[in-house]
């Protein structure tokens, strides 16, 4: 469903974008390429990111909040977390208010995304971004920038939902597939994934809390299914 073409070589892509990007914040962002694809996951600086949006369609809906929290394979650093409310350029639908709880009045003094693009991108510089269900963050971020500054943004993402799906498909192809037929679906929702790793229930649909929840989930997936020495290319897309 993605219209974006994912490059094979992120380093080369960043180099090329650094040369062609027009907006200064974007140019600066691309000047800090992600780590080498062979870098071990426990040596990679990470940042968990989550958006709340007015709906699910990137071309019709917009971002209303962004949560960021830096972390690594061992620790999640709350003191460096960030949370922004953003005034969307698309109407705040009643359905979405029910989900994320952000109302018009909450956004009265909120800035437009354009005013904080530089700040957000500087928090992502040189780090590998971790999300739960990459389509939302990737498509929305790209579209929101196109709408405002005329050019989009693209960077590698680790998707905990995708990892979880792969972990479970692997299980199904093996023992479970033969034992439990027809296949039982495993929920890939953030809360359901977390529960499987013994992680506590957090408030859902708050960008910062979801970012924290995603960071914890990724640490748990690493602890259970991967080696800390695995190269980053095994995780990102």
């Amino acid at each position: 469903m993605s219209l974006l073409k994912i490059p094979d070589d992120w380093k080369a892509y960043f180099q090329q974008q650094a040369a062609t990007a027009q907006h200064s914040a974007l140019k600066n962002f691309y000047h800090h390429p992600p780590v080498d694809q062979q870098t071990a996951i426990n040596k990679t600086p990470l940042v968990a990111m989550d958006f709340e949006t007015t709906g699910l369609n990137p071309s019709k809906d917009d971002i209303v909040s962004v949560g960021l929290i830096p972390f690594d394979a061992h620790r999640i650093y709350c003191r460096d977390s960030q949370h922004w409310l953003i005034k969307p350029q698309k109407p705040l639908t009643e359905d979405s208010v029910v989900i994320h709880g952000i109302r018009h009045t909450d956004l009265a003094t909120a800035p437009d995304l354009e005013a904080i693009i530089e700040e957000i991108l500087s928090c992502l510089e040189g780090k590998t971004v971790v999300v739960h269900y990459r389509t939302i963050e990737r498509e929305f971020f790209n579209q929101a920038l196109i709408n405002r500054i005329g050019e989009g943004v693209l960077f590698p993402l680790i998707d905990t939902m995708d990892l979880e799906a792969k972990i479970y498909s692997h299980y199904y192809e093996g023992f479970l597939k033969r034992t439990f037929s027809p296949r039982r679906r495993v929920s890939l929702r953030l809360a359901a994934c977390r529960e499987r790793y013994g992680l506590p229930a957090y408030t859902p649909h708050h960008a910062l809390i979801d970012a924290l929840a995603t960071a914890e989930l990724f640490q748990a997936q690493l602890a259970h299914h991967f080696s800390l020495k695995d190269p980053i290319q095994k995780f990102w897309r």
């Binding site: 972390f71 999640i76 709350c78 977390s81 748990a220 602890a223």
Partner: peptide
């Protein structure tokens, strides 16, 4: 305090 917390998952 909440802002100073570091979170860590152990198996």
């Amino acid at each position: 305090i909440a802002n100073q917390i570091e979170v860590s998952y152990v198996r």
